[in-house]
Amino acid sequence: MSALAFTVRGLGFWAPGYPDLAAWRARPDACPEGQAREPAAPKAELLPPMMRRRTSLLTRMAAEVAAQALRDGSLDPTGATFVYGSVYGEIRTTLDLLAALLVAGEPLSPTKFHNSVHNTAAGYVSIATGNRAGNAALSAGRSTVAMGLLECAALVAAGEGDVVLVIAEEPLPEPLAAGRRWDPFAAAFALSASAPGDMPARTCRLEHGANDMPEAPRPIPPWLADNPCAAALTLVEALAAGAPARVALEPHLAAGWQCALGAGA
């Protein structure tokens, strides 16, 4: 087996108005122009209510899709290794802290402070599931999805067992955003080493090459296409479609990392 091959055993998805992958796949071809800027957060029932009420949209999205992927792939939540990818992480909680800093003598909220770290969701999900494996929280700009999959493929190759990649990105708040607008979404991919009998279309190999693939059959709605983690949407669609395909993980580059689906182990 190539060190960069793995099988996707489960998927998770959440976007405003689309609480799971089935709802997303059933969306009309012509999506509404714009979405709510303050979307209702997902249920994120993986987190106990007392814990959940302290968490951000980002952490709830991450917990929601992680739970979906674990269920879809029949994975043990206590044993899997989680890798979280996000460009701006808990940026809205961070903005609250930036505002509080301007009030002289005002102590920062300890809860907001620990909720502002990039591994916030990682911490809450490990506590909620009793998972004592290592985890990671990554960022690589518009290459976050690609680098997250490389980290996961290397974990699988190292024999670390089941690995779940959780991609989640909130909207950037003003004034920091300076006009950059996108809607939030999250997606999760439960991965493990490929084995004989795996559904061929769920076997993946990471490759590096020119991004010359044809347009995806269904374009990504504009309110999500600008999300810096949008490559995860294309990957989710291709995996759910269940046919061999080549997905650009760094579509902003002329050549970059790609995921070849149906490439076999």
Binding site: L4, A136, L138, A140, G148, A154
Partner: peptide, 26 residues
Amino acid sequence: AYVVSTACSSSAKVFASAQRLLAADL
């Protein structure tokens, strides 16, 4: 190229990633 950000363990965990990237021949 990526950043690992897990608060105060960030730049210890990069050694785990580095070792795995080397082992996977990336």
